[in-house]
Write a protein that binds this DNA or RNA. Structure first.
Lengths: 336, 336
DNA sequence: CTGTTAGCGCATTCAC
DNA sequence: GTGAATGCGCTAACAG
């Protein structure tokens, strides 16, 4: 069906080795022959079979990206960042959705290795032991995105979740709030834990005693925020502010507040996280912590590319991107 | 490094041909030998190299999914539908983001073919001539999602965009609206055109004359809706209702209305499309047309799988999934 | 510089 | 039923 290197060699009256050489610049070829070959290649519109190439080279120009559904809201943007960067360097992105299922993750990891992917980006939010083991066993470049392994033996790119939440909590405290609930995600994710710790530390640093019942650990989505909100706002003695681990949770919380007869921010202040496009358009506009999602994606790709080039060095780096408090309308100063 | 079929053959004292046979059930093998081989396979944890296999079989167990950024809001859900379905059948999803760039699309299509993908799902919203040509030239199973080629020579899965918009417009008319603006996406997308036609027809069928200046064709995102809204609501003689091609556009339009001192739905009714998760949580809750996004994804996968099995038959089917008007708060009845 | 040859890991035709 | 040999399309030693 398709053209092979043989066809080119025959029509150009050279050996297949020569064709391979001009195509890969692997060895010097005389200008005349090179040109002759290129002419045939162009006329035929020939391009080498990447599968055969992979079989020999053990590289595929493929990069696997594992995603789960956490923070699913910004996955799309994140992936675009990765994808664009990789594409510019001739790599293709193999996207794998794991739904956070360890078994599925492992399945994909093995599959990817068998396909000779040149690298992997993990956006699965909970670095499991199985993953660590896999990358210990297989020498495949990998970037942990938005989460790191405990020992920091692998490259990673993150924002400073601890500091970001610390800053957010501090902001609420500066506004005069002394009772602040924490609408969390699952504590299995280090990301969540780091945020929680930042929150606790900010409380502590400002002489606020953490209260039993301020923590709601459900998930990163709208429904979780709504449920936590309905639960919290039904209480007699409710906090004056709520920190949410995502904007979607914040939106759910705002809905719950309104359904409970509370106004935001007059009766309760609600802070989000992510700064998804809708955050600035919501009513009230959501005060939130901005993550540079696209940059996290493209940064992952850049780091991975570097690691692929330097494969074998065992080098490993960590990158932390800046966050930013975006002040809008959903949090107000307490002036009583 | 990795295990090969030779290792298995050696340890089981059989030829590689026999190993291949038990693994593929391609030819009968005596029970004793089969068992002996399987034992070695299990002990070694051997699995065949898919790349070598692809080189011979000309199939990869890979499916390419091309996406652009239109309706980017629901791509995530759509892809999950595809991915899950394919995964269950042993296929892996190769996701390619084209940004609607024809050149990039073509690049990917060629790459995918060279990787021997077993099929392709197109979610690029504008069936371009180049794409049609590609699939005419290359006999690769393909599903056009959310858009069809004009001639209907390829399989596709859609909702009935024409009817859905007709229904939505009719709903607004039934509410008493006689002047209805259309916040559109780019007219290069057939999807957009079909919706526009449904809108026009509904107007016509109910004796409403279409007015110059009711059409705003920008894009499917929030900003487009906002801009169109600011433009429209500044006018003296503004419509009482607006149909938007997506919920994000609707959200932008609602923002614009409020920034123009208009209340929704008291002063202007705004209707969305898609029913993204936020639509029901927005303030006001958005009246919209629901698309079964996940089902469009899994349906695409099912149709593709079927086509892969029946490859060569040249069979081609079209599937239309139901839409639904979701009545919420953003549109009100005119009672004057 | 260039051509010949030998694999990469596997499926499959042939002989037996 | 089973094994030896051939080749998928390509790269890389090896000679010349």
């Amino acid at each position: 069906m398709s053209l092979t290197i043989k066809d080119v060699a025959r029509l150009a009256n050279v050996s297949i080795a020569t064709v391979s050489r001009v195509l890969n610049r692997s060895k010097p070829v005389s200008p005349e022959i090179r040109e002759k070959v290129m002419k045939v290649v162009d006329e035929l519109g020939y391009n080498p079979n990447p599968v055969a190439r992979t079989l020999i080279m053990k590289e595929s120009m493929l990069v696997g990206v594992l995603i789960s559904d956490v923070a699913n809201t910004f996955i799309s943007m994140f992936v675009r960042g990765i994808e664009k960067e990789l594409f510019q360097h001739g790599y293709t992105t193999l996207l794998c959705n794991t739904n956070g299922d360890t078994e599925v993750e492992l399945h994909y990891l093995n599959l990817l290795r068998d396909k000779y992917v040149d690298g992997v980006v993990l956006l699965t939010s909970a670095p499991k032991q199985e993953q660590i083991d896999f990358f210990d066993k297989n020498d495949i470049p990998v970037i942990f995105s938005s989460h790191t392994d405990k020992d920091g033996r692998f490259s990673s790119i993150n924002i400073d979740d601890y500091q970001a939440t610390y800053d957010a909590t501090k902001y609420l405290i500066m506004l005069g709030h002394r009772s602040i609930a924490f609408f969390s995600g699952p504590m299995e994710y280090y990301q969540t834990v780091r945020r929680y710790n930042g929150y606790l530390q900010a409380l502590d640093d400002h002489g606020i005693e953490y209260q039993e019942g301020w923590l709601f650990d459900k998930d990163y989505d709208l429904e979780s925020g709504y449920k936590s909100g309905m639960e919290l706002f039904a209480r007699e003695n409710r906090p004056t502010a709520v920190f949410c681990v995502s904007d979607m949770v914040a939106i759910g919380a705002i809905r719950a507040a309104e359904d409970s007869g509370l106004r935001v921010p007059e009766d309760v202040s609600i802070m989000g996280f992510d700064d998804i496009p809708i955050a600035g358009a919501y009513r009230p506009k959501i005060t939130t912590v901005r993550q540079p999602v696209y940059e996290l994606g493209s940064g992952s790709a850049q780091m991975l590319l570097k690691q692929i080039r330097e494969k074998g060095t065992g080098s490993c780096e960590s990158k932390v991107l800046p966050h930013e408090i975006i002040v809008r309308e959903s949090c107000r100063a307490l002036t009583d």
